[in-house]
Design a protein around this nucleic acid. Structure first.
Lengths: 150, 150
DNA sequence: CGTATCGGATGAAACCGTATCAACCGAGGT
DNA sequence: ACCTCGGTTGATACGGTTTCATCCGATACG
């Protein structure tokens, strides 16, 4: 088979599905490592993804969390439920609009966040340790420009 | 905030979680496009992923499908159930070991596979159309070496 | 034989996304 | 001021999918 090859799902695959399959595996590799690094803090990746937003932006409405995480309302609901139950975040009413709830990280949440963050540095570096110097940055650059077209 | 910055989840994020978040979005972008490109053939990504293996390797035991797709036994079971119901694959007994079932793609399955494959070429190219010449290949190369360390 | 292991199958639980609902705001018309 | 109406925010209900634990028949091995 020459020219247009069929998909194989293995390294060297040149088919239109190769990129997607690769991204799937690459993400699984990272997610596995990061999930493990966070388990001891009682946090899951989806919870952490929300905490990241809360730390970066401060109190945030659930609507904005949906947009920031590119997930859906129901998912955010459940994650915020979990965070509230663990005492890592609180829902606060917003004066002026009784529909809106702002989510704010708590002291305990921030503490867990910083601890998990610290524990993640090592594993994150190991993930790219087999690449040559400069390549991790190049990968990040290409991925960023791929993911966010102008 | 200098030196070790906190995660933001936005482009330019330099935290240990940046790569994972990026990969998540990148994969979502590709998966969305590819899923859409395949919907008309009555195929879902997980079904197609199995078909890819079947086409690449020929008849394959369910056990090997689990390993090849890095998914769960039960998941493979259900996907093969679906493929069988659609007439795209069949389970065949293996002489010599009555535990094992080999899954084989059918004529109809191969036809659907090739058609979906063809329809995917255009969308796949559009996904990387905004990158500079050579960059898609570079991205594939980096991703491959990242995902499959020696 | 008897035990351990393997491949596959099955059912329950957790998870994700869609559709739906109720409460609420704001604008416009009367 | 009052009412209606479209759009928004958050909550919930439901179906499909993935994941986990267990079970069963078949095979390998001592």
């Amino acid at each position: 088979m020459s020219g247009k090859s069929r998909a194989t799902g293995r390294p060297g695959d040149d088919s239109p599905f190769a990129l997607g399959l690769l991204l799937r595996r690459a993400h699984a590799r990272v997610a596995g490592t990061m999930t493990a690094a966070m388990r001891s803090h009682g946090l899951d990746l989806r919870h952490f993804a929300v905490l990241i937003i809360l730390v970066d932006r401060g109190p945030t409405t659930q609507r904005d969390l949906v947009e920031a995480t590119r997930s859906d309302k129901a998912g955010i609901m459940r994650v915020v439920d979990d965070l509230e139950e663990k005492g890592f975040a609180v829902r606060k009413a917003v004066p002026g609009d009784r529909r809106v709830r702002e989510v704010e990280i708590t002291e305990a949440g921030l503490k867990a966040f910083d601890a998990a963050h610290e524990d993640a540095v090592g594993p994150a570096q190991e993930l790219v340790a087999h690449l040559r110097p400069g390549e991790p940055a190049k990968l990040m650059d290409l991925l960023t420009r791929f993911t966010y077209p102008e």
